[in-house]
């Protein structure tokens, strides 16, 4: 749109004494309050749009980076069935990343730019993936705990106000349930298997429990973005609410298969009707978030390497397609 056109429109509006920004804001807020979806072509406050870009893209990055710790064990999967299931699961993660990048792009940002943000450290991904997978049991722990935590979060997000994000989450939730079952099945089988298997399973739980509950982020009081996110109905439940929900579900699952949650302060609170649990090591949490986890550098390097090594392929595909267009 040329500058003259814009000037004309502004003049016209001034004449009609209508403040369009206020009108748009009102329409937007009415939609939010009425539980209607905001769609890509709708007017939205810059803050809303930026928050969504950040949240959706980080969610997408998490799915993609998450392929690495699990992908690490595909070639060592100990049975044909385990191999098929793990490969299908990791493939699903790629798919979920794609659904989310797709939803994010509707907000006016390209996947290439999102990629760049990830590489430059401007965008983050879930810290849980900065921990290494050290044994086959970790495949169980990740499926059970990490996907379990993700499910708690994602079920809640199905009701998020932004249309494409909500639809993406509904699709993802449908596919996610097999992931958690896969993980829990591995843990259950190992916990009931040989002595070494049981030890391996307990060890995996010991290493992944705290990072899993850290996935829900800082305490509500320490989370500055939660306010807006709740107001705009991007987020439907707070960090602490989701975390509590996850813990309550999972403790019983662990007890059922004879594994012990590594939290000496974990206790059922009859009055609350839920579990009390120990304090999270916030120093570890912030360290890992800020880049000082065991695998941060490795995960990004891996992603960058794949991207760089694939450049000639993407270039070729583009060149080929352009030749076809010229010939049509």
């Amino acid at each position: 749109m040329s500058e003259q056109t814009i000037d004309k429109k502004v003049d016209s509006a001034k004449k009609r004494k209508i403040n369009y920004a206020v009108l748009q804001e009102e329409i937007f807020e009415n939609k939010i309050n009425a539980e209607k979806k905001i769609e890509p072509k709708d007017w939205m406050p810059e803050g809303y749009r930026n928050h969504l870009i950040r949240q959706i893209s980080q969610h997408a990055h998490s799915e993609i980076i998450g392929m690495q710790p699990e992908g690490n064990w595909i070639t060592r999967a100990p049975s044909l069935r385990a191999k098929m299931i793990l490969l299908a699961k990791v493939q699903d993660e790629a798919g979920h990343g794609l659904y989310l990048y797709s939803a994010c792009e509707t907000l006016g940002i390209s996947r290439e730019e999102l990629n760049q943000q990830l590489h430059e450290g401007k965008a983050k991904y879930s810290s849980i993936f900065n921990y290494p997978t050290l044994s086959w049991a970790d495949m169980g722990a990740i499926g059970w705990l990490v996907d379990g935590a993700a499910i708690v979060n994602q079920v809640s997000l199905q009701k998020t106000s932004y249309g494409p994000y909500s639809r993406g989450m509904i699709k993802i939730c449908k596919e996610e349930s097999f992931h958690q079952r896969q993980g829990y099945e591995i843990m259950a089988q190992m916990a009931n298997g040989t002595k070494e298997q049981k030890e391996m399973a307990q060890d995996a739980l010991n290493r992944f429990w705290w990072p899993s509950i850290m996935m829900f982020g800082p305490h509500d009081a320490d989370s500055p973005r939660t306010g807006n996110a709740m107001k705009w109905k991007i987020k439907r439940k707070t960090n602490d609410e989701l975390r509590q929900s996850f813990i309550d579900k999972t403790v019983e699952q662990a007890e059922l298969i004879g594994l012990k949650i590594p939290d000496p302060d974990l206790k059922w609170n009859e009055e609350k009707g839920s579990y009390d649990f120990g304090e999270i090591d916030w120093e570890e949490f912030w360290n890992v978030v800020n880049g000082n986890g065991p695998c941060n550098e490795q995960r990004l390097d891996h992603h960058k390497k794949a991207h760089n090594e694939g450049e000639w392929v993407r270039d070729a595909a583009r060149a080929y397609s352009q030749k076809q267009t010229t010939n049509e």
């Binding site: 993609i64 044909l80 191999k83 098929m84 790629a94």
Partner: peptide, 28 residues
């Protein structure tokens, strides 16, 4: 399956693991 998370595009990552899964199913 060794291509997992290393594909030149995400779409290709999925395509390759799709083929890998088909082959694995057949082998099974």
């Amino acid at each position: 399956s060794e291509w997992c998370s290393k594909g030149p595009t995400l779409e290709e990552d999925i395509a390759i693991s799709n083929i890998s899964l088909d082959l694995l199913g057949r082998a099974n």
